[in-house]
């Protein structure tokens, strides 16, 4: 097995282009190394992106934030401005694994692992996050929602990898929240996850909303009907009930060892309502 540790995006792209076998991208390694240890992955080569310039930094850009692909959950949680602007995205990333895992796990890795139950992804989708991808044809920007295409599968082409995640600027009275359901309190995988991002006007009426669900379909899904249920309302009880119903209606889960269709469908609506109430409070509604 070959280990590559390039220091520039250009070099990384070149290394990837030269690969003929199974080459995996290593960021935090909290999925990849576990898979290798358990024999589920036996790559021919590993490309470590942590030494590439910019991969470990969070930078301001157009009022928003560009989070490098190797930035850990802990580093995000320690970035006060990021936490203030996108508390839901940070808390979602903060739910991946234990404290030790948080020191390594990355949002971009969580995205590219393409689990339908990935915690950070519904929050990123609700945030309208955009992934920057480098590859043999240069650099392109692509909405986060379009990266995963199914369990373990992404839309990334041969030789492509995510270099950063961009979280856009926030107006006043805007916030987000992420909730997941797990049978335990920690060290678990979402049975259902829900990210909600909202913007309120001065009167407390919702002017913009985005809602995404995890673990209820082969990929994380955005639920436009849920957003519609919120926009134009003060996020009052009827609106929240409509949000709940829209999320349950949009869920198309499977029954497996972690939960049943009925459970996931119902809890999708429950979490959406609870997350919306948290986001509303964070956005400063009276």
């Amino acid at each position: 097995m070959h280990y590559h540790s390039p220091t520039s995006v250009e070099d990384a792209v070149k290394v990837l282009a030269a690969q003929s076998g199974d080459c995996r991208i290593l960021a935090g390694g909290t999925d990849l190394l576990v898979r290798m240890r358990s024999g589920l992955a036996e790559p021919d080569a590993i490309l470590d992106i942590k030494r590439i310039d910019g991969m470990r930094s969070i930078t301001r850009e157009e009022g928003g934030f560009r989070v490098g692909a190797a930035v850990s959950g802990t580093e995000m949680a320690e970035h006060a401005a990021l936490v203030a602007a996108w508390p839901g995205v940070v808390e979602a990333t903060g739910l991946i694994g234990s404290t030790q895992i948080q020191g390594r796990a990355t949002m971009a890795g969580n995205l590219c692992n393409a689990s339908p139950a990935a915690d950070s992804v519904p929050a990123m989708v609700a945030a309208g996050a955009v992934a920057q991808v480098a590859g043999p044809n240069g650099v392109r920007d692509i909405p986060v929602a379009q990266i995963p295409t199914g369990p373990g599968k992404t839309s990334l082409g041969p030789g492509e990898f995510v270099t950063s995640i961009f979280l856009p600027a926030r107006p006043d009275r805007a916030s987000d929240a992420y909730l997941r359901f797990i049978p335990r309190t920690e060290m678990d995988i979402a049975v259902v996850g829900c990210g909600v991002s909202i913007t309120l006007d001065a009167s407390g009426t919702c002017t913009e909303a985005r809602v995404a669900l995890g673990a209820v379909a082969p990929t994380v899904i955005e639920v436009p009907e849920a957003a519609t249920a919120l926009v134009g309302t003060p996020l009052d009880d009827p609106a929240l009930s409509a949000l709940s119903a829209a999320c349950s209606a949009a869920a198309s889960p499977i029954s497996d060892k972690r939960g049943t269709v009925e459970f996931r469908t119902h809890v999708a609506g429950v979490l959406a309502r609870r997350a919306a109430v948290i986001a509303k409070t964070r956005a400063g509604a009276a």
Partner: peptide
Amino acid sequence: ALNEEYIYGEDGVLQNAGFLDYRVPVASD
């Protein structure tokens, strides 16, 4: 009482042979 169980598929294969899905309580529970 709450979460631990052996889960078998239709094929008789154990579905949760790991501490992720065989859920012993953690301290925060």
